[in-house]
């Protein structure tokens, strides 16, 4: 299986081209007021991690959305290749028995 790195621009190595003068791209994850997990909210540009956190604060928490911020440079994220959606995900579509819905749960177990 191959993977892709969405945040990496094709010419970021700058072979024969002039180096790009853009700040690197960062992915922003925010833990909301009541949420346990950090959730991906979007991306932004920043020169370094510290400024990425500050920019995330200014761009994504203006309306009191968060209590914690994570940032990671986009190039460090590996993702599944869109072209391999079939082999990766379709096989599980027919295996409904993997959902634990075929068991009778005794009443005294209560809420699961």
């Amino acid at each position: 299986m191959s993977s892709v790195t969405p945040g990496e621009l094709p010419d970021s190595e700058g072979k024969g081209k002039s180096p790009r003068h853009e700040w690197p791209l960062w992915e922003v994850f925010i833990r909301g007021q009541h949420g346990l997990n950090h959730r991906h909210v979007g991306s932004l540009h920043a020169p370094d991690a510290e400024m990425a956190i500050k920019n995330a604060r200014d761009v994504y928490t203006r309306r009191n959305e968060g209590v914690s911020i994570w940032v990671v440079e986009s190039r460090h994220i590996s993702a599944t290749a869109p072209g391999e959606k079939g082999p990766l995900f379709e096989p599980s579509e027919s295996k409904i028995y993997r959902h634990p819905t075929f068991y009778d749960i005794p009443d005294d177990v209560g809420h699961m």
């Binding site: 700040w23 932004l44 920019n55 200014d58 761009v59």
Partner: peptide
Amino acid sequence: PVLEEDIALAN
């Protein structure tokens, strides 16, 4: 100069 700074300055 950049979107992020634009919002930060407005804040």
